[in-house]
Computed example of a mutant assay.
Amino acid sequence: MIRPATPADVPSIAALIRALAEYEKLSHEVVLDEATLRDHLFGPRPFAEVLMAEADGRAVGFALFFFNYSTFLAKPGIYLEDLFVLPEYRGHGLGKGLLIALAKLAEERDCGRLEWAVLDWNEPSIRFYQALGARPKDEWVLYRMTREAISALAAEG
């Protein structure tokens, strides 16, 4: 079953984020605080939304997303930050179900795009996404500023 997350799901979301980080070999980067996560998802100014995948009466997957904007299309878009299903529940349609629910949201909200990034070594996910019709944007290079770089740039002003 796929459904929107509620504040009561925050501990499950946090646990799934940690499981995703372990799968991506990035556990050392997880410093999330559940209270902050709850505020950022369900507080007065939500920054992101989450869809939950449930099976056997428990949360086994999630999709965390937020809106971006295409100036060329003059339309909002959905950026999928994380999509994860616990390994033992893969192959049962839950990942596809999460993406279908996101595609429906994108249509309901008149979005021009649904985008995400995938680690270049994650061949199972790449094959899964391509089977659904997604295509890589090889001509674009992702850039990131970390907290230190943001602070240094902000200090210049």
Rank of each mutant, 00 (worst) to 15 (best):
A74N: 10
H92V: 11
Y89P: 04
E123Q: 07
I100A: 13
L142G: 09
K96F: 02
L51H: 01
A74W: 03
I126S: 00
L73T: 10
F62T: 03
R147D: 13
L98N: 03
A63Q: 01
F72N: 09
A155Q: 11
R3K: 07
A131Y: 03
N122Y: 09
L99G: 00
D82N: 14
W121V: 07
I13Y: 02
D110S: 13
L114A: 06
I13C: 05
I17M: 14
F128M: 09
D9N: 10
E148N: 12
A101V: 08
L105M: 14
A19W: 00
V118W: 00
P4S: 13
L86S: 07
L132Y: 08
A14Q: 07
A101S: 11
R18A: 15
E88K: 06
F72I: 12
L83I: 15
R38Y: 09
Y143S: 08
P87R: 02
T146V: 09
L37R: 04
G93E: 08
I150D: 06
L51K: 03
F67I: 04
G77C: 06
L80N: 08
P136N: 03
E24I: 03
L119C: 00
P11N: 06
G157W: 01
W116A: 02
E49M: 13
V30Y: 07
D33F: 11
R144M: 11
Y129W: 03
G157P: 01
S27Y: 00
P136L: 10
G61N: 07
T71K: 04
T36R: 14
M145G: 02
I13H: 02
G77T: 09
D120W: 10
P7W: 01
P46K: 04
A35V: 15
D39E: 15
T146I: 06
S70R: 01
L83S: 01
R113T: 15
V10W: 00
A19I: 04
L80E: 12
P46A: 13
V118E: 01
